[in-house]
Computed example of a mutant assay.
Amino acid sequence: MGRDPQVNREHRPDKQFWNDIYVRSSVRAAAYDSWLDKYSGELEHTRTTPVLDLGCGAGNNTLYLSERGFPVIACDFSEEALRCVRTIVPAVDTLLLDLREPLPFPDESAQLAIADLSLHYFPWEQTKQIVSEIRRVLKPRGVLLCRVNSTKDVEYGAGQGELLEPGYFLWEGQRKRFFDGATLEELFQDWQVSRMEEQVLHRYGKPKWVWELCAYTKK
């Protein structure tokens, strides 16, 4: 998440890198897959409380949810990503935020959050802090749905480049974390995990291995 020729342990991603990506995006760039279909039961509890789409990117999940009548707050730290979202879903609420900072939501204020391919760009301690912040803003028995890079994701840098810390690499100018099952279990040890499945995405030109996870707060 960011191109930086120098290795910096305190990861400060290059916002311009992501803005440039979304400047080149168009309405056609938003194309969701069906991964949320299986969570229709969890989603039904959010009809009156906005879903937090954390790291919404071009708006794939925001579009999916909006088309089905769910309120959404589309969140990203790229202004251009949010511009794309407003193009495809003009009425949606958008919010510029950085996941490394405290989330600007009250305690126990959201029923469901989505973090789709947005949690695997950070050092380990920062990753734990982000997950803890998400847990803080979710209601009791609130739900997090997320997908993260798998250690099998060799087409997108798993095990390649400069090792910054276990599972975390600088590869082709991007810092990326790759998860195995044990690491995910450690990260979500304070949650009740109902689904944790390794699978391949077919959204991209090459196969992309990810973990998909559904976790509930224990509060």
Rank of each mutant, 00 (worst) to 15 (best):
W209P: 07
K218V: 15
I114P: 09
Q160I: 03
E165G: 05
L65I: 03
P123A: 10
P166D: 13
Y168C: 15
G41H: 11
K219V: 10
T62D: 03
D20S: 12
D4Q: 14
E165Q: 11
A182F: 04
T48W: 06
P106Q: 09
F105P: 12
P90Y: 01
Q129I: 08
V92H: 02
D37F: 09
K219C: 06
Q199E: 14
S132L: 10
I130F: 01
D153Q: 08
L145K: 07
D33M: 04
Q16A: 15
G69K: 07
W124F: 11
G205F: 07
L36M: 10
Q6H: 11
L138W: 05
C56Q: 02
D180K: 01
G2T: 08
R9L: 15
D37P: 12
R12I: 13
W171M: 02
S26F: 00
W191S: 05
K139M: 15
P166W: 05
F122P: 02
D76W: 01
E185A: 13
L144Y: 04
Q129K: 14
F105Q: 12
F178V: 04
C214T: 12
I21C: 00
A110I: 07
W211I: 09
L82C: 04
E186G: 09
T46M: 11
P123M: 05
G69M: 09
V23I: 14
R177T: 12
T94I: 15
L52H: 09
L138P: 08
L187K: 02
T87V: 10
Q174A: 10
V193D: 10
F17E: 11
S132A: 15
G41I: 08
I88R: 00
L117F: 02
L95K: 02
F188S: 11
A81V: 00
Q199F: 12
A29R: 00
V51A: 00
K218L: 15
G173L: 06
I21Y: 02
A91L: 11
